[in-house]
Design a protein around this nucleic acid. Structure first.
Lengths: 171, 171
DNA sequence: TTGACCGATTGCGAATTGCAACTGGTTGTA
DNA sequence: TACAACCAGTTGCAATTCGCAATCGGTCAA
């Protein structure tokens, strides 16, 4: 737990907080996978994070003010992790990173569909999704919207690809 | 040098390539600091990267197709590193990361000015800057522009802040 | 009361990092 | 021709971090 801070450059400072292979994946799962408990993050992680690393990163993200933790009223041991506004505003970073990865790296079809939709939707869609996150993580009420939310649309698209993949595989 | 690839998620794949504390700083210096030689990257780095890490990361970035290396005709030992199109398209990632860091982390005034201008300029300015990078790194000709380039404007703004800081310090 | 589940913590070998010194070669200058 | 400065890395080594598996003390439903 050293002081780090190699320079006052915004990119460097961001990397000192998020520059590892797990932190942004945790944020991703909280945003897109709606994971809010330790176990959910641990077992439903696509990449298989180990529990000590997860505990460590959650602590750091708490310290940095990117997430908060509160007790789950339904279970004395469970904690509910939520994104702060600061955490929610990492969405554009994730979106750009996803778009770049989608374009240049060997992305699987199922896991790439969200990146494609998010990229096509652009900053306007990101802003809408961030508003949805403000509602589910910060409790900020938002005016009624018609039609499915961005979160729902991304999830539906993902499930459609998975179903199609299964059908093809069976055939 | 294992195969990694923990999952086919675009964010994960991006992090497997760039998820450390140095890779994106090297890209940053190539983009904004116009560093093209090993020594420049080594000694003019704000954060003080060590030579073995720099050599290792340059190798990885080469392997990943994010940069290229060619011999410098003026010096038999010197290599010139250039960004590829894939590397240039990391600019939006850096820009978003810089904007987030600028907003939430203790950024120094000198090093934050670029982030502010880039954030205010938005995607349009990013696109223009990427075009400039295509010219200086890929040799792609671009039509004449009036006035100073984005790169020049960022540099001038930075120097203005540094000069002001010095004047204040002296006074 | 029992067994599944909960959020972590611990121990430990392996991999990565950071520092400093060094290598083998090139270049400009006298 | 001699020499110092410069060039792109490489090497050795100690310290840190990572990743896995096992475990811990507590909670919950049956």
């Amino acid at each position: 737990m050293t002081d780090a801070r190699r320079s006052g450059c915004p990119i460097n400072l961001s990397l000192e907080v998020l520059g590892d292979k797990w932190s942004l994946l945790i944020i991703r799962d909280m945003m897109f996978g709606n994971r809010r408990h330790f176990r959910e993050l641990l077992t439903k992680s696509e990449e298989g994070i180990s529990s000590n690393i997860l505990a460590d990163r959650l602590k750091t993200l708490l310290d940095e003010g990117i997430i908060t933790r509160e007790d789950d009223p339904t279970h004395k041991q469970k904690g509910i992790y939520s994104l702060t506004e600061q955490g929610i505003e990492l969405l554009p970073v994730l979106a750009q990173m996803a778009a770049w990865g989608y374009k240049y790296l060997p992305v699987s079809e199922e896991l790439g569909i969200r990146a494609r939709l998010l990229s096509e939707g652009g900053p306007k869609m990101w802003a809408e999704f961030m508003d949805e996150l403000r509602e589910s993580h910060l409790g900020v009420k938002r005016r009624r919207r018609t039609g499915p939310s961005v979160g729902e649309r991304l999830q539906a698209a993902y499930e459609r690809v998975v179903a199609r993949g299964k059908a093809t595989a069976v055939k």
